Amino acid sequence: MDFQPTEDQRDLRAGVRGLLEGRYGREALRAAVDAAAGAGTGAGAAVDRGLWRELGEAGFFALRLPESEGGVGLGLPEAVLVFEEAGRALVPGPLVATHLAAGVVPGAAAGTAVVTAFDLAGDLAGDLVAYLGEADAVLGAAVLPVGEPVRAADPLTPLHRVARPGGAEASASASRSASRSASRSVSVSAYVSEGALLTAALQVGSALRTVELAVRYAGEREQFGQPIGAFQAVKHTCAQMLVRAEVARTAVYAAAVTGDPGEAAAAKLLADGAAVRNARDCLQVHGGMGFTWEADVHLHLKRAWVRAEQWRTAAEAEELLAAELLDSAG
């Protein structure tokens, strides 16, 4: 089976990359980070409504809607390509939830509505919801809930804690299942599996971008009269980063073609590991410079941490894969 992108798919990816480079390049990213930091915890707007509408006009959210419903009529393989580019650019906002809401929530497909979801692991105090303060709707919820802002690791992912129906005694997994089951026109299995796969694509984009950042810095930074990229330890680190990112990307592409929930869970597991570990290794290649606010490395690491807790955590993916192995063995 050939998993190589077709010419049309490559053109689609190139078009999305060009749009994001022109509309949400590094200057826009840093401006958003500085604005969020200056506004304080949970108060900074992370969703650029203008960019959101442009993504909608470009078909980002309606990509998988049938043409008869005003969509582009493509599938998961094309969706993971465009989400990979969004992850590479660190575009903030509930991209996955809004994409899943196309055809369900009015305005989601066109990018005129921002839709979030109960996709983060909660605790005994309630469920965490990203971008609640900026959302027009929550996927599967009849009304927009009220939440309390909480500090987030990623400055561009504002979080709110929402009281869980049924009291604090209910488990986080049960709460998430209840929230997801309320989603209109989207089955529970498709809702979680596709959300996990699209989030994995975002993680892959970030993992590949940190490879680029590490290699570029290794070629520019000199030590003992030569670029640090000439040293074997740095070479090996960059090579390992590339292998992680490419293995995860292959898993994401394969899961997008097969549509298998188990393969989607495996792809999320690999992509989370690649995004987090690559960001850490990229930080090490940058040395002391990597720890500064001015460097972009910490933004990739913080976003990767948040995404690793979205839609399907490592523990949830491992449980699903273990259950599938037991079923096949029986």
Rank of each mutant, 00 (worst) to 15 (best):
A271T: 02
S187D: 10
R221N: 11
A172N: 06
L197Q: 03
A279E: 00
A267C: 00
G287F: 05
A58E: 03
A266S: 10
P165G: 06
A163I: 04
R280W: 10
A218R: 07
L65W: 04
E7A: 15
T199C: 13
Q9M: 13
L90H: 08
E222F: 14
T98H: 11
A196F: 02
K302A: 15
V114P: 02
T313C: 14
V215Q: 14
G219W: 06
P145D: 03
A265C: 02
L95F: 10
G140Y: 03
L202A: 02
E324T: 13
Q223D: 08
H160C: 06
A32I: 08
D272F: 05
N278W: 13
G71E: 10
P227S: 14
G111K: 02
G330D: 05
H99T: 13
A256N: 01
F3I: 13
A79H: 08
A43I: 06
T116C: 11
C282K: 09
G15R: 12
L90D: 04
R49K: 09
V114Q: 01
F224S: 12
R64L: 05
S193F: 00
A317G: 11
L65D: 01
D2P: 15
S185I: 05
G195R: 02
A137K: 05
F61H: 05
A28I: 11
L159G: 00
A168R: 14
E54M: 13
L299K: 09
S181G: 09
A135T: 00
S187K: 04
G103N: 03
V115F: 11
P261H: 11
D327E: 10
Q4N: 09
V80G: 05
A86E: 03
A255H: 02
S183N: 01
K235T: 07
R151G: 05
G205C: 07
A233G: 08
E263N: 04
A248T: 09
G15W: 00
V146N: 06
A79I: 07
L139G: 00
P77W: 12
T199D: 03
F224K: 12
P227E: 07
C282I: 07
P261E: 04
G287Q: 14
G167Y: 08
D11A: 15
R244W: 10
V146P: 00
L100N: 02
E318Y: 04
V243C: 02
R23D: 06
L81Q: 11
A214N: 04
V91E: 06
C282Q: 05
V234R: 08
R249V: 12
A314I: 07
R307A: 14
L242T: 07
V91W: 12
G73P: 02
G167H: 07
P261K: 14
R64G: 01
E194V: 12
T157E: 08
G290T: 06
G167M: 06
